[in-house]
Design a protein around this nucleic acid. Structure first.
Length: 444
RNA sequence: CGGAGUGUAGCGCAGCCUGGUAGCGCAUCUGGUUUGGGACCAGAGGGUCGUAGGUUCGAAUCCUACCACUCCGACCA
């Protein structure tokens, strides 16, 4: 991509309305544009990142056998009346009337809709388990939207739903998502900690929030530092292996303030292991049994000829929120340097030519290098404007490609000035650069 | 919803108190000089001052209502 042809409206000043760094960067570098309170348009740079996050989320859902569907954003109030949540959900639900005066709503979540889909199609225990997910816009009419896309009204979310024959199988499904979430966040280069959580209006009694640490987070968390040393390596999709994984995490005290109990915390966690800080909720999983299947009559025939309501869980990841969450974790606002994890970077490498009006050779060389990189599956962005070096570097630092090449009169032959953002520059050949980036991309 | 603010050019702001028809920096456009860490010179374009009323000879400025947005709080997969 050539900067001169791109739609990446960069501002020199921070817009005054943005108070946290993800919001500042996103407006500054033209990733989003506010449309009204808590509602945003996604411009090319931001959309690219969000799409890459979505892709990773999708891949990790597919890996545990979940199947993708797409439900509408507008739902009928009927099914919500069936579940009883039409009244319970309150002002946060955006209610709309169509021309026939029917009560509709913009979906804040999809338990009812997916339960309706399930009950009308599947009747036998033999069809279970079923894991369905979709990635779709949601709307929650927050009292006070804030922090840009971190707490907005319209947002992009992956929500999955599990259907099982009994509790044991349902916990098995739950644990699959538990693993899937750990793997997803790891690929996004985030350390997300599963924490015991409140179930809120979704209901149920088993729930984990996945939280990443960030000063600007809205959730207060109390945890045992040792939980950060854990990972999901070696876990497979066997029932036992998944149970062990959850136990491994649950052995350490780790909760948000809703579930905080000072006595327990002090009893279970030695003083040097205590960590009280703030975090951003990026995922939330729930088990709620027959909370929806019962009132909505979603049952299957059992082997003995009896019927029972299916046992359900739901599993959310805030895809659009993750864009902000990654920035909160990775943006060095003091030096104005963003470095996207290569798995979601809008561009893999930035090429910075030092232009000379009377000599096109440097730009030609840059274009050749770019083509070569693109042919190897590496996404490039070239600043082909005639600004000076410093201003180009500052701009690229905000765009956040994790690698940069500078090409100018000092460039000698095939040896290029290559730098991983935040590390020492090195002089290596294009071949070596391609090798390094390919390796990084495969790894992530 | 309670409290506090803000609304003037794409972004950041001044002007308002003390009324006389709008200004600065950045960005944009033209020409030129530059180009190894946010360059310089010369010129240009862009705003019915959030909206609607009112007061006044005259309103960005004073008054009223409304709208939008921001912040704090309550709220929150």
């Amino acid at each position: 991509m050539l900067i001169s042809k791109s739609f990446i409206p960069i501002l020199k000043n921070n817009p005054s309305e943005a108070k946290i760094k993800s919001h500042q960067l996103m407006l500054r570098v033209g990733m989003i544009k506010q449309s009204s309170a808590g509602i945003y348009s996604w411009l090319p740079l931001g959309f690219k990142v969000m799409k890459k996050i979505e892709k990773i989320v999708r891949e990790e859902q597919n890996k545990i056998g979940a199947q993708e569907i797409l439900m509408p954003t507008i739902q009928s109030s009927e099914i919500w009346k069936e579940s009883g949540r039409y009244e319970d959900y309150g002002e946060e639900m955006l209610r709309i009337k169509d021309r026939q005066d029917r009560e509709m709503l913009y979906g804040p979540t999809n338990e009812e809709l997916v339960t309706d889909i399930f009950r009308s199609s599947l009747k036998s225990y033999k069809s279970l388990p079923q894991l369905l997910y979709h990635i779709q816009w949601k709307f929650r009419d927050e009292i006070r939207p804030r922090f840009g896309i971190m707490r907005c009204r319209e947002f992009f979310m992956k929500d999955a739903y599990s259907f099982d024959i009994n509790d044991e199988e349902a916990f098995f499904s739950y644990n699959k998502f538990f693993l899937s979430y750990l793997k997803t966040f790891k690929r996004l280069n985030l350390t997300a900690i599963p924490m015991a959580a409140d179930t809120g209006p979704i209901g149920g009694n088993l729930s984990h929030e996945f939280i990443i640490l960030a000063e600007t987070g809205e959730s207060k968390i109390f945890t045992d530092k040792r939980v950060f040393d854990l990972n999901s390596d070696g876990t497979n999709l066997e029932k036992k292996s998944l149970e062990d994984l959850r136990k491994k995490y649950e052995q350490f005290y780790s909760v948000t303030d809703e579930k905080f109990n000072k006595e327990e915390f002090e009893k279970q966690v030695s003083e040097q292991n205590r960590l009280i800080t703030k975090g951003i909720e990026v995922g939330h999983i729930f088990y709620f049994g027959d909370k929806y299947s019962k009132p909505m009559g979603a049952s299957v025939d059992l082997p003995g000829g009896k019927k029972d309501f299916v046992k359900m869980g739901s599993y959310g990841i805030g895809v659009s929120r993750l864009v902000g969450a990654i920035i909160e974790a990775k943006y060095d606002e003091k030096n104005e340097v963003m470095k996207w994890p290569i798995s979601v970077a809008p561009y893999d490498i930035a090429i910075i030519p030092m232009m000379n009006k009377n000599d096109n050779s440097i730009l030609d060389k840059s274009n050749k290098i770019s083509l070569e990189l693109e042919n190897n599956g590496i996404e490039t962005i070239i600043d082909d404007t005639d600004e000076n070096l410093s201003s180009k570097i500052k701009k690229m630092n905000l765009i956040g490609a994790p690698y940069q090449i500078i090409i100018g009169k000092k460039t000698e032959g095939e040896i290029l000035e290559f730098q991983e953002v935040g590390k020492e520059p090195q002089k290596i050949s294009l071949k070596e650069i391609i090798k390094i980036l390919k390796e990084q991309k495969v790894k992530n």
